[in-house]
Amino acid sequence: MHWGMMMTQPDRFDLEAALETARAAPPHMSAALAARIGDDALHYLPRERLWRRILAAVGGPAGLGGLVTATVAGFWLGVAPPAQTVDPLLFFGTADAVAEEDMTDLTGSGWTVFEFASEEG
């Protein structure tokens, strides 16, 4: 039988009516399934990555840039300090590297570092 002929017969009405009924009344998913889908959605919800959280904590890309610049500058000053700069370690390790009057000012007590060291010895 040709399909076009069949479409004109009463059978067609039956099928179209059944399809229309199916369209009008789709099967409904259960509340339990909806809840499971919701749980899955939360479970797989993408979290912010650790490095993004750290980046936000230091002030974003600009903050990170400043942090890197300060770190590099500090490292470089440690490796190659300017020629006119006094090594801070000299204040603690070598007494004769600093003039007596300078240390008097620093201690504020009238004693010199040299005298202090002699009394201990």
Partner: peptide, 25 residues
């Protein structure tokens, strides 16, 4: 949803899941 917005998951679920279920059934 990929940016972490829960509300987007709710809307997507409501839009898509019933159709997926109907077809599967």
């Amino acid at each position: 949803y990929a940016a972490g917005e829960v509300a987007a998951a709710r809307i997507l679920s409501a839009r898509l899941a019933p159709r997926a279920y109907a077809h599967a059934y």
